Amino acid sequence: MARAGFRSPWSLVPWAAALLLVLSVPRALALPEICIQCPGSVQNLSEVALYCKRTPELMLQGHCCLNGKGTILGLDLQNCSLKDPGPNFAQAHNAVIIDLQANPLKGDLANTFRGFTQLQTLILPQGVSCPGGINAWDIVTFYISNQTCQGQRNLCNSTGDPETCPENGSCVPVGPGLLQCVCADGFHGYKCMRQGSFSLLMFFGILGSTTLSISLLLWGTQRRKAKTS
């Protein structure tokens, strides 16, 4: 017979198991701000919702279609009274499909989609041009109330201009209708003409010595003035 106040080691097993279970459950991923920027929820028959439902690993939360890591692959902000996508829009730079129809969008959207290299379907209000123009997309379809830009093109493969980037640089797409030149390994500077790695130690050494020289010169000048006054 066990004494009063004494617990058998076996009585602690359920508590230990419960504690391990709690610790093993992953914390819920914080929902990106862009997913809750617009009130309401995604319509079941929207293109983003249908895209999300076709893949079991994806889930709809707020106005976003997310994968298991919390990466936004689909974004539905239709009819959200947006004049521009807003500062949080860059959180959806990995999105494959984005719906912005029925919004009073203003201005050129080209730079808005800088970094959206994975985007393949973009639904816009009627009268708003596809970012990068029609040449940045395989198909541009016009409907009564919206238009769809589909199949983002890699302009690096379609420019046909060998002078797009310098000899020691390569073209890299950075969004619809956007590209940039990246210097090859071992080259840097204007038009990638300088060979060798950029020496930060030398740069800061020169900067430091120049600053020190100017400081000593100013200190000597001020001291001389103080003595003569």
Rank of each mutant, 00 (worst) to 15 (best):
A92M: 03
A92R: 00
N94G: 00
N94P: 03
A95Q: 02
A95Y: 03
V96C: 05
V96F: 15
V96M: 06
I97Q: 02
I98E: 01
D99Y: 01
D99S: 12
D99C: 00
L100R: 00
Q101S: 14
Q101F: 03
Q101R: 14
A102M: 07
A102P: 01
N103D: 03
P104A: 08
K106H: 14
K106A: 09
K106V: 15
G107W: 14
D108C: 08
D108S: 13
D108Y: 07
L109M: 13
A110R: 15
A110I: 11
A110F: 10
T112D: 13
T112A: 14
F113V: 00
F113M: 07
F113Q: 05
R114F: 03
R114V: 09
F116S: 04
T117E: 09
Q120F: 07
Q120N: 14
Q120A: 12
L122S: 02
I123F: 00
L124R: 00
L124K: 03
P125W: 02
Q126A: 12
G127K: 04
V128H: 07
S129T: 13
P131A: 08
G132E: 08
G133S: 06
G133D: 10
I134E: 14
I134N: 15
N135S: 07
N135P: 04
A136S: 11
D138H: 11
I139T: 13
I139V: 10
F142W: 05
Y143D: 08
Y143N: 13
Y143V: 00
I144C: 01
I144S: 08
S145V: 07
S145I: 06
N146V: 00
N146A: 04
Q147D: 03
Q147G: 06
Q147P: 01
T148M: 05
C149M: 01
Q150M: 05
N154F: 05
N154R: 07
N154L: 06
L155Y: 04
C156T: 01
N157P: 02
S158A: 13
S158F: 08
S158K: 09
G160N: 09
G160K: 09
P162H: 04
P162V: 02
E163Y: 14
P166F: 08
E167L: 13
E167N: 08
G169W: 10
C171R: 03
C171D: 10
C171V: 03
V172Y: 13
V172R: 15
P173Y: 11
V174D: 15
V174Q: 15
G175C: 07
P176D: 05
P176L: 02
G177Q: 09
G177R: 10
G177K: 11
L179H: 12
C181H: 07
V182L: 09
C183Q: 07
A184G: 10
G186S: 04
G186L: 00
H188R: 02
G189N: 10
Y190D: 15
C192H: 00
C192M: 01
C192T: 02
M193P: 04
R194A: 13
Q195S: 14
G196R: 02
S197F: 13
F198A: 11
S199D: 10
S199V: 05
L201R: 09
L201V: 15
M202P: 05
M202E: 13
M202Y: 11
